[in-house]
Design a protein around this nucleic acid. Sequence first.
DNA 1: AAGAGCATGTAACGAGTTACATGATTGG
DNA 2: CCAATCATGTAACTCGTTACATGCTCTT
Lengths: 183, 183
Amino acid sequence: MSLRKLTHIDYAILGLLKQRPVSGYKIRMTFKKTALGNFSSSPGTIYPALKRLETLGMVKKKSHVSKKGHELFTITKTGIRALTEWLQQPVMKEDVAKNLNLLLLRFAFMDGLCSKENMQKFLESFKLATAKYIAELVKFQETESRHLPLSGRLAFAHGIASYKTTLRWCKTAQLQVSKNLSK
Amino acid sequence: MSLRKLTHIDYAILGLLKQRPVSGYKIRMTFKKTALGNFSSSPGTIYPALKRLETLGMVKKKSHVSKKGHELFTITKTGIRALTEWLQQPVMKEDVAKNLNLLLLRFAFMDGLCSKENMQKFLESFKLATAKYIAELVKFQETESRHLPLSGRLAFAHGIASYKTTLRWCKTAQLQVSKNLSK
DNA sequence: AAGAGCATGTAACGAGTTACATGATTGG
DNA sequence: CCAATCATGTAACTCGTTACATGCTCTT
């Protein structure tokens, strides 16, 4: 029911509300001032998004704090289900290439919603997809890169270095999660 | 005149056309299959964008290759001017936080349009902005990070590692450009 | 008492997505 | 000759951006 697909911001909002109920303004400030800053914090984005989520039954107003002009939003069971489904979506290689931040956001939200096993599964497929993508990039570099001007080659090299960092991160994250798992 | 601001895709198209005249379809395939894949390659994006750029006088059809259904586009002087201005925009710290790829794209396009001195200036401010941003992230990590769950902390650590890689890249890029400058 | 910051909203606009539609050319 | 790929385009829809508008609350 109502599997109308949500936008990235919708999921980011759901993830925030999962941690604790907050107001629209708090959400805006979070998007503005924290590392989640790749999302728009403008009122014209947040408030319509909250309204959308409300009509979908994924968030609810907790209005007994009715100081007028300070409305807390809570995530509903439906919202939690949608969020969890999103978190457990398989890691696609386009995600690695185009939406890396989103993958990290998904991972960040997993605590408390996904089992450690699911987190491990996520990290493993993340790692594989990243390694595969790096291989593609390196192959391109070997064949085509000489035709690029210096700045182009350097920019391309940044991409490779960046994904290698991500690959290393996957491995350390796997270690950390498994350590946490066993204690 | 006509300083109506262009979108990111518009600039990406201009940058491609600067290298050599290509068809709309070629542009689509480039966005689809190369590392520029963060841009949409759908016809509903590319063809309207080309039309927009054409009415702005930034690209022109080179239609003597009129095999019907294969129209090459060329960049005009106006287009080159707009592209160059964009490349020489100062590096803002929001760009580092939100549009890193765009900064790299700008750098990739600089060869042939900007002087080596301008490229050096770009890299220097890029490096400073990145270092500043890393400092902010580390500060946040020290104060707030303990309140985050494990997956949140790890995701945050990815951000820091990633920007450190970018910082290192800035330095090596500076070296490469200066080497190239002296020969 | 005034101004800064908190807090919520709306309306117009532009751009990207999706889906559809068409036709030419090449390869098996 | 049929399918796949090349190649271009359009229309409906939704979302995000920008700019505006309102009112409360705290501090100085």
